[in-house]
Amino acid sequence: MTDQVFDWMAAANKKAKGKRPEYFDDPEDERMLSILMAVVGEVSVLRERMDTVERLLDAKGTISRDDIESYTPDKEAAYERGAMIREYIYRVMRGPHQMVEELQQAEPPVEEVSRELKEI
């Protein structure tokens, strides 16, 4: 199985080849916005999930608060929840994660490539 050697969460964060445009005076603002936008997206996901639960409860009955409070994950569930949190961190940290790749490989501005492509 490839999932033992292939870290799909890290791979999903791969940076597109091509220097990223700079929108703000302070490069840290770029990263702050990218984290913020990811969180914005995730909150939307949570809301959608909550709505799903509400609709299911409307249609199918009930689950108790005690069930939630007393829940203890087994080994498999504990792993899955850890992976879920890890996935969450990778997703939210995509911006800073990509900074690492940018540090590894400097790239010419796309504008330069654009001029080149016009000529080749």
Binding site: T2, W8, A12, F24, S34, R94
Partner: peptide
Amino acid sequence: KFWSALKRNSMEMRQQNGRAIVLRQID
């Protein structure tokens, strides 16, 4: 600047989100 930055983020999120769906079930 801010609109462009948001739009760029949306494009990047679309790629990350799509790759995450695909790569976790690539086998």
